[in-house]
Computed example of a mutant assay.
Amino acid sequence: MQNILNLIIPILSIILIGYAAGKFKILKVETSDILTRFLFFFCLPSLTFSNIYQSKLEDLLNYRFLFTFLSGMLIVITLQYLLYNRLFHIRGQELVMLTMGGFYANIVYMGVPVTSLILSSVIPPLIALFLQASFFFPLSIFLMDQFCEPKPKRDRFGTILLVVKNPILIASFLAILSLVLKIHYPQFLISTFELMGKPAATTGLFVLGFTSNLPAGSMISKHEMKMALIASFFKVIVQPLIAFLIGKYLFRLDAWWLSAAVICSMLPTAVNHFIVSQKYHSCGNESRLIILFTTIGFCIMISCYLLIFGVIQ
């Protein structure tokens, strides 16, 4: 129990420090954008490159982990679609946003810091990030555009550019290519990337707390509260449970990779969800609640998981 507290309390403490910095205006509002850009364009690409480059190629191509995580997402997406569409008769952008809230994980700000502390590796969340950022996020944006009235003008390569311009995906591709081609870089270069990537965990958690001071919205209705609770339930309970069952009994993952699959599936909903909700003026209140509920739920569920199965190093 002491080991679990030693892992969880520092994570919550950094999030709360970030929240306090925003709540009491210790840092200006624009600080969030500066820290996010520093994290997105410098820390995370460096961390991604150094971790992948120094890993084994077979770990990166662990199809059993990949399909375990992917299966959980697809099953949750299907279940949510049937529930929202058939039972609550929800259509269009609201359907896309609620479904996204129930499966889209906060891998950047929460996944990387948590797995680096619990599993001493960021390879599993980076694999999950590649999957989310290269397919599911562009697909979600594409669907939101399709339900816009009038539909926005976007050239055929607009969605592809969302992926191509992602520095984390670029760093992943270059590192994998270097492993495949057996390119050896001087140690000082790898050490530089490692040093640049070290602030990623702390910065990510701090920014998550800082950005939790979301702008106030209109009065929250019972319908919005209900939808947010349902999406949160799928995100922090249903998806990790499915990942556990599939990983353990179908793909026979070992204890370390099974824990990685469950933790990555359990991660709270990403702040990107709120950004998309503001861009399309859809499900703003639900998004705020989903991010809040899943973050709290994750802290509770990860503690329970570690208490039952222990810390896997």
Rank of each mutant, 00 (worst) to 15 (best):
T99A: 09
G102P: 01
G102V: 01
F103L: 07
F103S: 00
Y104S: 02
A105G: 08
A105F: 14
A105R: 11
N106I: 05
I107K: 04
V108E: 07
Y109M: 12
Y109I: 04
M110I: 14
M110W: 06
G111D: 00
V112I: 15
P113M: 00
V114H: 00
T115L: 14
T115Y: 01
S116T: 08
L117P: 05
L119H: 06
S120F: 06
S121V: 01
S121M: 03
V122W: 00
I123R: 00
I123S: 02
P124G: 02
L126E: 06
L126V: 09
L126F: 10
A128H: 04
L129Q: 12
L129C: 06
L131S: 10
L131K: 05
Q132P: 10
Q132V: 04
Q132D: 15
A133N: 15
A133L: 15
F135K: 05
P138C: 01
L139Q: 01
S140A: 13
L143Y: 09
M144Q: 02
D145Q: 03
Q146P: 00
Q146N: 11
F147N: 07
C148T: 12
K151T: 04
K151V: 07
P152R: 00
R154W: 01
R154I: 06
D155E: 08
D155K: 10
R156F: 14
R156K: 11
F157H: 10
G158F: 02
T159E: 03
T159D: 07
V163W: 08
V164Y: 08
K165M: 02
K165F: 12
N166E: 08
P167S: 06
P167C: 08
P167E: 13
P167G: 10
L169N: 08
L169I: 14
I170R: 06
A171F: 08
A171E: 06
S172F: 14
S172C: 08
F173C: 08
A175C: 08
A175I: 05
I176P: 01
I176W: 00
L177F: 15
L177Q: 14
L177K: 09
V180D: 15
V180A: 11
L181I: 11
K182H: 15
K182G: 13
I183P: 04
I183A: 01
H184A: 15
P186T: 12
P186L: 05
L189G: 11
L189K: 05
I190W: 07
S191I: 02
T192A: 12
T192I: 03
F193P: 03
E194M: 13
L195W: 15
M196Y: 09
K198L: 09
P199S: 09
A200T: 15
A200V: 13
T202A: 12
G204P: 15
